[in-house]
């Protein structure tokens, strides 16, 4: 009787310690840091990058290499403690930005040529007509193209007081302001890019393993039955 009780107590002891360990293990941070992600965006003639592990921890001192379309190394640098690294666009070409966080951890981000051209204000079509100095030409351009003219007063009657901005200038101003406003949003998006594995993923994976186990058991049980003499 006493022996039985002791055995039960022993079992309980082991069971509880095992449960405790499991609890400890599962309460540990579920997010893993075993994937690095680099996110890059352009602003004007600069490229900004942000690098982080999948748990949101920033990659500090990670090597960032920038390659062109033909895999030629254009420049390289290291991320700062915030995982940031920025550089001036070295060439108008598609860029492949590769982050190496050491020990076989690598992430990359591609920027297309179009993206870079748009950011630098270079259009693929024929370049916009040069800005002319003579007032008559400006008025002509304003009439010909759908450019915007801001007027102080009535510009038709009193052209001297007119403040004219051609399309290109206006675009540049808007881009500058937008960049400023969008910067924090882009940064936030960069952080959101990086989601650690969700509980669904984890249980999904375990489910797959159990399913495969079932499939294996099914086939092996058939084999076992066939092997047994009737």
């Amino acid at each position: 009787m006493k022996k039985n009780f002791l055995l039960k107590l022993n079992c309980f002891k082991y069971f509880s310690s095992f449960t405790l360990i499991l609890l400890f293990v599962f309460s540990a941070d579920f997010a893993s840091a075993h994937r690095v992600v680099i996110f890059a965006w352009t602003e004007g003639n600069m490229v900004f990058t942000q690098s982080q592990f999948s748990d949101g921890r920033k990659v500090s001192n990670g090597l960032v290499q920038v390659f062109d379309f033909n895999d030629n190394l254009l420049l390289k640098g290291k991320t700062d403690p915030n995982g940031d690294f920025s550089f001036k666009i070295p060439e108008i070409t598609a860029l492949n930005i590769v982050l190496n966080a050491g020990m076989g951890h690598q992430g990359h981000w591609k920027l297309s040529e179009k993206e870079i051209k748009t950011s630098m204000g270079i259009s693929d079509q024929k370049p916009a007509p040069e800005k002319n100095d003579t007032r008559t030409d400006i008025t002509k351009t304003a009439q010909k193209e759908p450019s915007v003219s801001l007027t102080a007063g009535e510009n038709n009657k009193n052209p001297d007081s007119a403040l004219l901005l051609d399309k290109k200038q206006l675009e540049q101003i808007i881009e500058k302001v937008l960049d400023k406003k969008i910067h924090p949003i882009t940064r936030m998006l960069a952080q959101m890019q990086n989601k650690g594995p969700s509980v669904n993923d984890i249980f999904g994976g375990i489910g797959y393993i159990l399913g495969l186990m079932g499939v294996a058991a099914f086939f092996l049980s058939k084999k076992k039955k066939n092997d047994c003499p009737k």
Binding site: H34, F53, R57
Partner: peptide, 18 residues
């Protein structure tokens, strides 16, 4: 196999990597 699958989610941050 399931234990191994889950174990990789428990990480220890070390220096620049983890």
């Amino acid at each position: 196999s399931a234990a191994f699958f889950v174990a990789s989610l428990i990480h220890v941050p070390i220096g620049p990597t983890s």
